[in-house]
Design a protein around this nucleic acid. Structure first.
Lengths: 357, 357
DNA sequence: AATGACATGGTAAACGTTTACTGCCATTGG
DNA sequence: CCAATGGCAGTAAACGTTTACCATGTCATT
């Protein structure tokens, strides 16, 4: 069941079938109709491999993420896939699971698959592997950390904005002892978030106690451990910013074990605004970094680069904003008389799906 | 940079290079060494498309899920991918998002990609599309619902076991008014779960009030709505089994809005044991249906079928057990003096990661 | 009527592999 | 010593498309 069968049945050449299928304008309407009819009757589906081989373009984009099981990524994968399908692309999905072997494998798979471009959304790709990929001068798109080079685009995330909003939000409610649970500090994004926090605190005239900054790992466990540590402090923070939602959930979870009520005794703010945030009890106030937008930018970057007749000399820079989303895990610090109703920093999103309040 | 360049550099024929790369035993060690050296020096990676085209096997398995953003699936995708990579397979991932168009597209993509087999993990594939797929007599694996046919395997899930455990667990704590929030009833799996619930209740001598069975949609919203409905009842259930974890979370979330304490005022049991269950506050008691095991079975089914020299006349049946996992969202009904410590049904897993209790 | 321009369809090469077949050489048995 | 056998490498066809190039036919212009 190949193009030749179709050609035979429609009494045309394979070239005409090919042109018809690819909607080349120069084919006569009558013939095209015959061809489509034959295709339909035979149930013909073109062979992607053969197409790729001869045309030199596979219509596949690679997508490298760190872990699909990290709630941050499914949304991205979904959006990316939807976009891909719309443009008749396939996606070659790979997760590195923070494993150097898997990273190497990932690169190998991309090359063997002759992908037309790859989006690297791992927040910390080994540089050497990056070299391998760049070597082929494929269109590439990174988040945050990419090098400036031909055909490689970058999505720069403005971590500071959302974090500043969060700090202001907390400060407006008279929190003074505000802590921060970081991510793994080998990730540039984790460092950036922590730095933005310290910066915002300074801006607003609050001091950050070194012991209020404790390291997590962007996973549940790290959040739990971090809070346990914090809990042993003589003087404890009344509010905690976390480097991502998982961390915040870990904190809340551990607070629960220690019978500390969130938000009455402890305000918690997450980062990412994964869907989980709105699943939590109480719903988590967090800083949104739109996963769908991120996926969209990444796809666009690749797609545009593929479409270019001449490679971009130095890839495009994209920007992604962050923004505080108020839910229910923050309130006034304990032993405080609420002066007025809940303070809302300007530009903040009210995104509480609760039906009662 | 193709096989011919390698051949030239190693001073052998392309056949020898091919044999070396594919580890065919008949190639002389000396030559092989030369070939590997050349491969290394040139940075040669075989072209998957060309391989697929000539060999007739793409080494790609299709994986169709309903939504990657459903917390049930990331774990599956991850495991499936890991297995695939280990066996030098790629995966063509597709989500149908409950959209008939997407389903059709999914099938088309599978065929155009000439996948070697496909795992359909959607819990409700349109039958017509199934025909399309079966028509090609590809290895197929379904969960629950597959037809008996050559090369198509099935994973039968024993919903009843876990559900019976849950009902017994609740009954042992003297719950009598036990309700059930179903999934979308067009899904066979949702019907099976509900039926198993009713059956278990009958077995144990408890009556199920019709108004205690309300329909959800396997998503958060459905759970919320269901509980809202239940809450308006004059006489309310003291415990709720839910058709999946998302539903249970919706219930908990709505209970929170209505200031009803889980588990003190309402015991909640989920189904699936997604990672979310252990993120919740309180951690959700749920029925485990191992996602990694499921993925493993699915992959194995495909892989074995591909390896067979002659197609299996009627696919293999696999079985997946379910099992209650006790956490913290269930306890004695309100206004009850706990007779003894928490009752644990036999064969039940204690899987509470809490550090304090 | 002859010529040129243009529209449209066909022919065949090419894409990068695998693999059936062939051929060479060395070894072994009679 | 010769024939048969077997191990191993090379030759070339094949996989299913796309597309450059060519051929043909039609129409308008002179």
């Amino acid at each position: 069941m190949d193009i030749r069968d179709v050609a035979k049945r429609a009494r045309v050449s394979t070239a005409t079938v090919s042109r018809t299928v690819n909607r080349v304008a120069t084919v006569d309407a009558q013939l095209a109709k015959r061809v489509w009819k034959a295709i339909d009757e035979l149930g013909y589906y073109p062979n992607r491999q053969a197409r790729a081989l001869v045309s030199g373009r596979s219509r596949v984009f690679g997508l490298i993420v760190s872990e699909i099981t990290n709630p941050f990524f499914p949304e991205i994968v979904q959006t990316f896939e939807t976009l891909a399908v719309e443009h008749n692309y396939e996606i070659l999905l790979t997760s590195t699971i923070h494993d150097p072997k898997r990273m190497e494998l990932a690169v190998r798979r991309m090359i063997e698959g002759r992908v037309d471009g790859v989006a690297i959304l791992t927040f910390g790709m080994e540089d050497e592997l990056l070299e391998h990929l760049r070597f082929r001068n494929l269109p590439l798109v990174f988040i945050d950390v990419g090098p400036k080079a031909p055909r490689v685009s970058n999505i720069r995330v403005d971590y500071a904005h959302g974090i500043r909003q969060a700090v202001q939000h907390l400060a407006a409610m008279r929190h003074e002892r505000i802590g921060f649970v970081t991510g793994p500090l080998k990730l540039r994004s984790a460092v950036a978030r922590r730095d933005a926090f310290e910066e915002s605190m300074r801006e607003i005239g609050l001091t950050v106690k070194p012991e209020f900054i404790v390291q997590g790992d962007h996973r549940l466990e790290g959040g739990k451990l971090a809070f346990q540590k914090l809990h042993q402090l003589r003087e404890q923070p009344t509010a905690l910013l976390c480097s991502n939602d998982m961390t915040a959930i870990g904190v809340m979870r551990q607070a629960f074990e220690l019978s500390i009520a969130v938000p009455q005794q402890l305000s918690v703010v997450g980062f990412d605004d994964t869907r989980l945030a709105d699943f939590m009890i109480p719903p988590l106030t967090t800083i949104q970094m739109s996963q769908t937008e991120l996926a969209r930018l990444a796809f666009d970057a690749l797609y545009k680069e593929v479409k270019r007749e001449t490679p971009s000399p130095v890839g495009t820079e994209y920007h992604l904003k962050t923004q505080l989303v108020l839910r229910r895990s923050t309130t006034f610090p304990p032993n405080t008389t609420p002066a007025k109703s809940r303070t809302i920093a300007k530009g903040t999103k009210q995104n509480d799906t609760s039906t009662a309040d």
